[in-house]
C-alpha cells in the first residue's frame, strides 16, 4: 500500500478546513478505503470534536513524535467507520513541538498502512502550516467566496509555488447561490478567475454543517444534504473519478415563485 498524503490548508482561519477534512475522510472511508486524519493544529485541536472522537483520546501526535507511544496507539478508530482513524493534535503543547521532518517521517510510516493520510493544517503561514505541507503529495486550499479568504488563499498558493510543491487544488466552501444570483457574492467563475488553480470542489453554505458539528457526525455520512454530497464528490475526484459539479446556480421552484410574485 502506498498512501497519498493530502494536506488541507487555507491561510485564513474559519473557512471550513476542519469540516472539509472530516467530511472528505468520512467519504473516502465509507467507500472502503483506509484513511488516517492528522490534526496539525497543535494547541488548538478541533478535528476530534468535529469527528465526535474527543472522548477517546489517550495519546496525541506529540506523544508519537517524542516516542512516548507507538504510532498505532495514537490512531483512534472511528465509531462508525472501521477503516477511519484520527491522530489528534496535542492540546497543551505549542506548535514547535513538531517539526516538518517529524511530519515527513510520520507520514512515510503511515503510507505503508493506509490509502489516504489527510492533514488538517492550522490557519496562518507559520510553523504549523509548514509542518502540514512538508509531507504533502497533494494540497487542497479551502476558501470562501469573500475578500479576505480569497486574498489569503492567493498568498498560500504563492508560498506553495515558491516551495515548488505540487500545484494545489481549490475547494470553494460556503457558496450561497442566491447571493451569487443577486450579484452580492463572488461566483465560482470569479474566484477561479482570480486564483487560477484547479477547482476540485464547490460546497454550498448549509446549516446542517453546524448541526453535524454539534452532534460530532460529519455530514458526508448522511445522504441528503447538498454540502455532504459536495464533499463526497470531492472524495471521488481525489480518487481520479470525473464527477460533474452539482448545479447550485439554477433556481429552486420556491425562488422562481418568489421572483414571479415580485418578492425578489
Amino acid at each position: 500500500m502506498t498512501g497519498t498524503v493530502v494536506t488541507i490548508t487555507s491561510g485564513k482561519g474559519g473557512v471550513g478546513k476542519t469540516t472539509a477534512v472530516a467530511n472528505i475522510a468520512v467519504a473516502l472511508a465509507s467507500e472502503g478505503q483506509k484513511v488516517v486524519c492528522i490534526d496539525g493544529d497543535i494547541g488548538l485541536r478541533n478535528l476530534d470534536v468535529i469527528m465526535g472522537l474527543e472522548n477517546r483520546i489517550v495519546y496525541d501526535i506529540v506523544d508519537v513524535v517524542e516516542g512516548r507511544c507507538r504510532t498505532r496507539q495514537a490512531m483512534i478508530r472511528d465509531k462508525r467507520l472501521p477503516e477511519l482513524f484520527l491522530i489528534p493534535a496535542a492540546q497543551t503543547r505549542d506548535k514547535n513541538a513538531v517539526s516538518p521532518s517529524d511530519m515527513v517521517r510520520l507520514c512515510d510510516e503511515l503510507r505503508g498502512e493506509v490509502d489516504w493520510i489527510l492533514i488538517d493544517s492550522p490557519a496562518g503561514i507559520e510553523r504549523g502550516f509548514r509542518n502540514a505541507v512538508a509531507p504533502a503529495d497533494r494540497v487542497l486550499i479551502v476558501t470562501n467566496p469573500e475578500m479576505s479568504a480569497v486574498r489569503d488563499a492567493d498568498r498560500v498558493i504563492g508560498l506553495l509555488e515558491a516551495e515548488e510543491k505540487p500545484a494545489p487544488s481549490l475547494i470553494i466552501n460556503r457558496l450561497n447561490p442566491s447571493m451569487v444570483r443577486r450579484g452580492d457574492m463572488l461566483s465560482v467563475d470569479d474566484v477561479y478567475d482570480l486564483l487560477r488553480i484547479d477547482v476540485i470542489g464547490i460546497v454550498p453554505e448549509d446549516e446542517n454543517v453546524i448541526v453535524a458539528s454539534n452532534r460530532g457526525t460529519p455530514l458526508a455520512l448522511d445522504g441528503k444534504s447538498k454540502a455532504g454530497q459536495a464533499f463526497r464528490n470531492i472524495a471521488r475526484r481525489l480518487n481520479g473519478e470525473q464527477v460533474p459539479f452539482i448545479d447550485l446556480e439554477s433556481q429552486s421552484l420556491w425562488d422562481r415563485l418568489a421572483r414571479l410574485a415580485g418578492r425578489k
Binding site: M147, V150, R151, V180, G183, D184, M185, L186, D190, L194
Partner: peptide, 19 residues
C-alpha cells in the same frame, strides 16, 4: 454596482500588489 463586482475589482488590484 453590485457588491460582488466591487469585490472582484478590488481583489484583482490587491492580488497583483500582494504577488
Amino acid at each position: 454596482k453590485k457588491s460582488a463586482r466591487s469585490a472582484k475589482e478590488r481583489l484583482q488590484l490587491v492580488l497583483i500588489h500582494d504577488r
